[in-house]
């Protein structure tokens, strides 16, 4: 399937990195570069439940019906993964969100074997929340 331009860029980057160390360094770099979520959005109602680290998700929608997802976390690897996940959904409409094959997308990063969207790392929880905006 076609991914957003930003998502495709992530896929290309990860495909070019060999070995777990490089991939995790890249993940942490992505997290580092992410602009922190404004304090006003780091509220309990934006906190995603079921994560070992704190994960915040703030959602907005423009007049064209396109969603914007902003995230933050106090753990580096999760933060990097969040950047990658929201890249697949940002600026999409509800209909487009519903069509994103997120499992295949994350699978292509070649991190899934040991960092699957499991329940405790917060990625699974955030994907479930984002998918609720799709229809």
């Amino acid at each position: 399937m076609n991914y957003t331009q930003c998502a495709q860029q992530h896929l290309d980057t990860f495909a070019s990195i060999r070995g777990w160390e490089g991939k995790y360094r890249q993940l942490m770099q992505l997290g580092k570069k992410l602009a922190p979520l404004a304090q006003e959005h780091k509220q309990d109602h934006n906190l995603v439940k079921g994560c070992e680290s704190n994960v915040w998700l703030q959602v907005s929608k423009n007049d064209n019906g396109q969603y914007r997802f902003a995230v933050d976390s106090n753990a580096r690897i999760v933060k990097g993964l969040l950047v990658i996940v929201i890249a697949a959904y940002n600026q999409l409409t509800a209909q487009q969100i519903a069509q994103v094959d997120i499992d295949s997308y994350i699978g292509q990063l070649d991190l899934t074997k040991h960092l699957s969207p499991s329940r405790n790392n917060g990625i699974h929880a955030i994907i479930e929340q984002i998918q609720q905006y799709g229809r």
Partner: peptide
């Protein structure tokens, strides 16, 4: 200054099983 979960993940990548949390 680091989250325990990150340490656990990066140790796991090297075959080390510890618990975090």
């Amino acid at each position: 200054g680091e989250h325990h979960q990150d340490i656990g993940t990066l140790l796991d990548q090297q075959g080390i099983a510890v618990r975090t949390g």
